[in-house]
């Protein structure tokens, strides 16, 4: 991570959303406080994530990006001693008050390190969520497996070896397999926590492309350390610092005319 050296502002592309209020709100986070044991990490975060857009979360290491994203599907509370309160409105309900199992079927997640199930084949990995949902119809499963692998831009590479173990793929393929696995249950939101940090630039490029493609169908929230990546894939960016949301807005605007001095320092690499 070359945060110490000022880097050129990434070139911006024209995004579909031009206005802050143009898209409907998918997730609304209100006064979210979270931490581990007694130590607070998120100190009252407010955020409205727009539907069918890609929102990037950036900020220095340890500022609480993973904590925030893991609150959104309540994986945070799987950690012993983790605390979380506030409000996360999703489709009119407070996600913190519904059954986390049901919530996670609507809010999928892809982790930093590819984690396909080692005892399952490629097809079984993708089908894992369907099987959880009680789908038993083989034809329907095969169809969804293909569709999900296509959406994850992996189909052409694996269509002849669907019965090979998922862990036999390359790192980038494994990560796309994990994306396919998350997409197979048709979530409304897909969370990705630094999904490319273990991948080479080509594999990273593939994933960025596919994220841009799938955002027509669902809301994507991606944590990234890579400013160029945020600029390439996201329409909105959240900048966090020490457990607080410093700035939130259109990526284009944030990267060209940041409203907050701290944001400017961070994205130009003067931070720290």
């Amino acid at each position: 991570m070359d945060m110490m050296r000022p880097m050129p502002l990434p070139e911006m592309k024209e995004g579909p959303a031009t206005n802050d209020a143009s898209a409907a709100v998918a997730i609304s986070v209100r006064d979210l406080r979270a931490g581990y044991g007694a130590a607070p990490v998120l100190k009252g975060v407010n955020l409205e994530i727009r539907e069918k857009t890609v929102t990037a979360i950036i900020g220095p290491s340890g500022c609480g990006k993973s904590t925030l994203i893991r609150c959104l599907n309540r994986m945070h509370e799987a950690i012993p001693g983790a605390t979380c309160d506030g409000e996360i409105l999703l489709g009119g309900r407070n996600a913190l008050e519904i059954d986390p199992v049901l919530l996670r079927r609507e809010v999928g997640m892809v982790f930093q390190r590819p984690n396909p199930f080692p005892t399952m084949t490629i097809a079984q990995n993708v089908a894992a969520g369907l099987v959880l949902n009680g789908v038993r119809d083989r034809a329907a499963i095969a169809e969804t497996v293909e569709k999900s692998l296509r959406r994850a831009a992996l189909w052409d590479e694996v269509k002849d070896k669907l019965d090979a173990p998922g862990v036999g793929l390359s790192g980038g393929q494994q990560q796309r397999l994990c994306i396919a696995r998350a997409l197979a249950v048709e979530p409304r939101v897909l969370l990705l926590d630094e999904p490319c940090s273990a991948l080479d630039p080509i594999a990273t490029g593939r994933i960025e492309e596919l994220l841009i493609q799938i955002k027509d169908q669902l809301t994507v929230v991606i944590v990234t350390h890579n400013m160029q990546q945020a600029a390439r894939v996201s329409e909105y960016t959240v900048f966090m610092l020490m457990g607080e949301m410093v700035e939130y807005g259109l990526t284009r605007k944030m990267f060209t005319q940041p409203a907050d001095k701290r944001t400017e320092d961070y994205i130009t690499g003067r931070f720290g």
Partner: peptide
């Protein structure tokens, strides 16, 4: 059993 594997399953909405 590696924690990330269990988390992957939980994240799919597993009990």
């Amino acid at each position: 059993v590696p924690r990330p594997l269990k988390e992957a399953m939980y994240a799919l909405g597993a009990t």
